[in-house]
Simulated assay, not measured.
Amino acid sequence: MIEIATSPATTTLAISGDLDLAERDQFPEIAARVVGLRRQLLVIDMCRVTFMDSTGAAFLISLADSGRRRGGATVLRGCDDRDLFVLEVCGALELFRIDSDHHCTPTPPRAG
């Protein structure tokens, strides 16, 4: 699931679950909404991402590239090493600022 929140200067995407091929149908609509908001800073909260493949990476890359062309910046927060590796293999890590100071709030274990 991808939730969008805005402030006067920032758009924040909070992503939870898998960011992969199975979720790709929602990517064009989300990208259009983010671009349409025209904020200078895009923060992508990856704290609750459970898996990202190259399709998810391509989605993030397209968002960062769109923002960069408008003079904006894209920040990744809560990204684990596995996700950073996928972006590095794609040759796109330089498109992002990495928020290394952010500490994710632990998710309580599921009952059952």
Rank of each mutant, 00 (worst) to 15 (best):
T55Y: 01
G72T: 06
S7P: 04
C90S: 13
I98C: 07
T74V: 09
P109F: 11
P109D: 15
F51K: 09
I2P: 07
E29C: 06
P28N: 06
S100D: 15
V86W: 05
L84R: 11
F85I: 05
G72L: 02
I30N: 03
A92Q: 01
D53F: 00
R24I: 04
P106T: 14
S100H: 15
S62E: 13
V89S: 08
P106N: 14
G56F: 05
G17K: 11
A57W: 07
R39T: 02
H103Q: 14
G91M: 00
A111D: 14
G17I: 15
I2H: 09
T11P: 06
M46N: 04
A111Y: 12
F59P: 08
C79Q: 13
T105M: 09
L37W: 04
C47Q: 05
T107V: 14
P109V: 14
A14F: 12
S16V: 06
G91I: 02
A9Y: 00
I61K: 12
L41M: 04
G112I: 01
R110E: 15
D81Y: 14
A58R: 12
L93K: 13
L87W: 06
V89W: 03
P106C: 13
L13I: 04
A22N: 10
D80L: 11
V86A: 08
C47K: 03
